[in-house]
Design a protein around this nucleic acid. Structure first.
Length: 676
RNA sequence: GCUGAUGUAGCUCAGUGGUAGAGCACUCCCUUGGUAAGGGAGAGGUCAUGGGUUCAAGCCCCAUCAUCAGCUCCA
C-alpha cells in the first residue's frame, strides 16, 4: 500500500500501482472526466537539486519535450501507476500546466495525421508553446496550404478515433535501431542527446503512431477537443542556420471551442493595436518601397509626437547636466578602424563610399563621434563627468527578412549619451542613469518594467576585453547600484557586450509584452582604443571610465511601442491633434473659428471640421482619429461663450465655458496626465 | 539571408485566360442638423517591377523588389 495525500490534506491508502485516474474515479466519475493530467510531489523530503542538472534541464526544455520535470513536483499521465507515497493534485481544464499537456498531445495528434497522409515525412520534435504548439518535420517537398487543411482534417479524424496515449518503455538500443531503420535521423539525435547508454527510453503510442517522448499526455486523442493548424514556416535544424531547414508546422489547441474563439478574438485585438496598422489609420508614418526597406517617413502627425518626445528628452538632458552635441552622419573609414567597428561590426555597416580624399562610412553608432569631442581638448578631473548627449541618426544594415515596422529598421535615431568619468564617479553616474530611465518610463505611462544585468562569462574570458579587475569592479558597481535601489533584477552571465557589462531595462506594455529599450553599459574598450585620458588630482594621466546609455533606445522603436501601448489613443500632451471642433451648422462656423483661435493661442493643437457633413459624421471622424476632446458648438454655446465637451472613451459631458475648458486641458498637458 | 504566403484606386478588399470592380476616403451639388455614417453626381488604377508563354495575361511561368508569419541574426 502507498499513501496518497490530496490537496485538502486528507490521505488515502491505496494499493501500489494505482493511477491518478483510479483515484479520480473513486472520488467521482465526473471529476475523472474533467481531469486532464496529474501533478505529484514526493512526500519524502526533496533531494537537493544540483545546479548543473537544473541548467541542463532548462537547456533541454528549450527545444525538447523530453526535459525532466523538477524533482519536487512533476506532471504525470493520469494512468501512470503510482509506486510511492505522493501528494497528488488532479489538474482540470483551468490549469495552465494542463493546457500545455493538451497542446503537446495535439502536436502528437498532428504528427499522427502528417504520417498517415505523408508517410515519407521525418519527425523532429513537437513541443507546446505559449500560444499553441508546433512540430518540426523534414520532407523534400514543401507542404502547401492545401496540405495543411488536409492535415487538420485528418487530425479531426484521429481525435474522433479517441486513441489512448500509451506510455511504453524500452531499451535505448532498440529505440535507436528502430529509428535508424526508419531513417528518423532527428529522433536518433534526440535520443542520443537526452538519454545515456543503458537508459530505458519512453515512447508514447496512440493507434499506429509511436513517438519518442517523455510525456506526459492526456489519456486519449479524444481529449484534444479544440485545435487549429495555423501556419507553416522554415526552422533550422537545431536552430543553426548552417544546418538544413525543416518545416515547422504551427497549430494551437485549447480545452474547448470557446477558448479557441477567444484566442482568435485576442489575436484580432492585437492586430488592431499593431503600430503598423495604427500608423496607417492615424497617418503617423510610412515606409516606402521606392525609398527602401527599414527607412521611416514621419508624417505630420507622427512628426508632432516625435517632436514632443524629443523636446522632452532634450530638456530633461539639459536639466540633468548633459551637454547636447551633434556629430556627422558619415565619417572616414579610418575612424571606424580605430574604434574597431570596421573589424567586428562591418557586416552591419553600409559599405564605404569612395570620395576623392578618402573612403567614408555611414555611422552605425554615435560613440566614436562623442569620443572625438572629448579628445579634442585635454581634460582635467575637474571637467568630469563629461556627459555628451545626442539624438543621433544611425544606419545599420539589417538582413532583409528582419525588418519589422518601427521596431526593427535600418535607419533610426538613438537618444544616445556617453558619460566620461573617474572611477570614483561611476556609481553615482549609474544611479543617475537609472533615475533618468525611471523618469522616462513613468512620464510615458509605463508602470511596469524588468531589469536585467548582463555580465561576463568567466569561462569564456577570451571573448571579452578588459582585465579581471575591470570586470569585477564594473559588475560590482552595477550590482551594488541595483541592490542599493532595492530593484529586483535577473542576471545573465555571458550576455554582456564584449566591451563591458550592462543593465537593460525592459518595459512591460498593457498587453504584458516585454520590450527592450533602455540600456546602460560600461565600456573598457573604446577609452583604450582612443587613448582617452584626463589629468587627475595627482597630476598624472588616467584613463576615464566610459558609460554608454540610451533610454528611449531608439526613438522609432519607442514610438512604435508607445503606439501599441496606447492603441493610438495618446494622452493629451502627446496627441497630435488635441481638440476637434464641430460646428453644428454653417452659422456656427464663425464662433468655431474664434474658439479655435483662442485654443491655439493657448498652445493647443486644434482641428476644425468645416465640411458640410452632419455633425454626427464629424464626431465620428474625430472619434476614429482618437482625438482626446471633441467640442460641439451650436446656438446655445455661441450665445454663452461655451462649448459642449465630448471626451474620448467617456462621451458627452455637457457644456462649459471656453475658459473653464482651457483651464482643464492646460492642466492635463502641463502634468503629462495619462487621464482625460 | 532562409521557408512559406501576399502585392489590384489614398484605405480595406473582390475579381481562375477574353472591355479593371465595390465600400470608405476625395471633388462638386443638394441638405444646416444637438453627440459615432443624410442624399446625389464625378474623378481616381503602368493590376509591385522586369522578362516569358499565349491570338489574348491582373490571372499561367521565371527573376527581382517590398510586405506578412516564422527561423536565424540583433553592441
Amino acid at each position: 500500500m502507498i499513501k496518497i495525500q490530496l490537496p485538502d490534506g486528507s490521505i488515502r491508502e491505496v494499493p501500489k500501482g494505482t493511477s491518478a485516474l483510479d483515484i479520480a474515479n473513486s472520488i467521482s466519475p465526473r471529476l475523472a472526466a474533467a481531469v486532464v493530467v496529474a501533478r505529484v510531489r514526493s512526500l519524502e523530503p526533496a533531494p537537493a537539486t544540483n545546479n548543473e542538472a537544473a541548467l541542463e534541464a532548462s537547456e533541454e526544455a528549450m527545444y525538447s519535450s523530453h526535459a525532466p520535470g523538477s524533482a519536487a513536483a512533476r506532471i504525470v499521465d493520469l494512468n501512470m501507476p503510482l509506486t510511492e507515497d505522493v501528494a497528488l493534485e488532479l489538474l482540470k481544464e483551468n490549469d495552465p500546466a494542463a493546457l500545455k499537456v493538451v497542446r503537446h498531445s495535439a502536436a502528437h495528434v498532428m504528427a499522427t495525421a502528417i504520417l498517415e497522409l505523408f508517410p515519407e515525412t521525418k519527425l523532429g520534435h513537437g513541443p507546446a508553446t505559449d500560444n499553441g504548439f508546433f512540430y518540426d518535420v523534414y520532407r523534400d517537398v514543401p507542404f502547401t496550404e492545401l496540405d495543411l487543411a488536409a492535415i487538420e482534417g485528418r487530425m479531426a479524424e484521429v481525435v474522433r478515433r479517441d486513441e489512448p496515449f500509451v506510455r511504453v518503455e524500452e531499451s535505448r538500443d532498440k529505440g535507436l535501431t528502430d529509428y535508424a531503420a526508419q531513417g528518423e535521423f532527428m529522433k536518433i539525435h534526440f535520443i542520443e542527446r537526452f538519454t545515456k547508454p543503458g537508459d530505458e527510453i519512453s515512447l508514447y503510442k496512440n493507434g499506429g503512431f509511436t513517438d519518442f517522448c517523455r510525456g506526459p499526455h492526456v489519456p486519449s486523442t479524444g481529449r484534444v477537443k479544440a485545435f487549429k493548424v495555423m501556419s507553416i514556416a522554415g526552422a533550422y535544424w537545431l536552430g543553426d542556420e548552417k544546418n538544413q531547414q525543416l518545416q515547422r508546422i504551427y497549430g494551437t489547441a485549447f480545452f474547448n471551442a470557446k477558448d479557441l474563439d477567444a484566442h482568435f478574438k485576442h489575436l484580432e485585438e492585437i492586430k488592431a493595436r499593431d503600430h503598423r496598422v495604427l500608423g496607417k489609420q492615424l497617418d503617423l508614418f510610412s515606409i516606402q518601397e521606392v525609398a527602401g526597406a527599414g527607412l521611416i517617413f514621419w508624417h505630420p502627425k507622427g512628426g508632432l509626437i516625435r517632436k514632443t518626445m524629443e523636446d522632452w528628452m532634450r530638456d530633461e538632458c539639459v536639466r540633468r547636466g548633459y551637454n547636447l552635441v551633434y556629430t556627422p552622419h558619415i565619417m572616414r573609414r579610418e575612424l571606424w578602424k580605430i574604434s574597431g567597428h570596421e573589424g567586428f561590426y562591418s557586416e552591419n555597416m553600409y559599405p564605404p563610399m569612395e570620395l576623392d580624399d578618402a573612403e567614408y562610412r555611414l555611422k552605425p553608432m554615435n560613440c566614436p563621434g562623442h569620443i572625438l569631442i572629448y579628445k579634442n581638448s585635454p581634460k582635467s578631473y575637474r571637467d568630469l563627468p563629461a556627459r555628451y548627449a545626442e539624438l543621433g541618426n544611425v544606419y545599420r544594415y539589417e538582413r532583409s527578412g528582419t525588418m519589422h515596422g518601427l521596431l526593427r529598421v535600418r535607419g533610426f535615431t538613438q537618444d544616445d549619451a556617453h558619460i566620461f568619468c573617474t572611477p570614483e564617479q561611476v556609481v553615482s553616474e549609474i544611479e543617475a542613469c537609472l533615475d533618468f530611465a525611471e523618469a522616462v518610463l513613468k512620464t510615458f505611462g509605463f508602470k511596469e518594467y524588468r531589469v536585467e544585468l548582463s555580465t561576463r562569462d568567466p569561462n569564456k574570458a577570451g571573448e571579452f576585453v578588459g582585465t579581471e579587475e575591470d570586470w569585477a569592479s564594473a559588475e560590482g558597481a552595477l550590482t551594488g547600484v541595483l541592490s542599493g535601489r532595492g530593484l529586483s533584477f535577473q542576471s545573465f552571465p555571458g550576455e554582456a557586450a564584449f566591451y563591458g557589462p550592462k543593465i537593460d531595462i525592459k518595459l512591460v506594455d498593457v498587453l504584458g509584452r516585454l520590450w527592450q529599450l533602455s540600456t546602460v553599459q560600461f565600456d573598457f574598450n573604446l577609452p583604450r582604443r582612443f587613448e582617452l585620458e584626463y589629468i587627475g588630482e595627482d597630476g598624472a594621466r588616467h584613463q576615464p571610465v566610459m558609460v554608454h546609455r540610451a533610454l528611449f533606445g531608439s526613438v522609432e522603436r519607442f514610438f512604435g511601442v508607445l503606439i501599441e501601448h496606447y492603441a493610438g489613443a495618446f494622452p493629451m500632451w502627446l496627441a497630435p491633434v488635441q481638440v476637434g471642433l464641430v460646428p453644428i451648422s454653417e452659422k456656427h462656423l464663425e464662433y468655431a473659428h474664434s474658439v479655435k483661435a483662442r485654443l491655439e493661442a493657448a498652445g493647443l493643437r486644434v482641428e476644425l471640421d468645416t465640411s458640410n457633413n452632419k455633425m454626427q459624421g464629424k464626431i465620428r471622424d474625430f472619434g476614429l482619429q482618437k482625438i482626446p476632446f471633441i467640442l460641439i458648438m451650436g446656438d446655445k454655446e455661441s450665445a454663452t461663450d461655451s462649448v459642449s465637451v465630448r471626451v474620448r472613451a467617456k462621451g458627452d459631458e455637457g457644456s462649459v465655458t471656453v475658459e473653464a475648458f482651457l483651464e482643464r486641458v492646460k492642466k492635463l498637458v502641463g502634468e503629462h496626465s495619462m487621464e482625460l
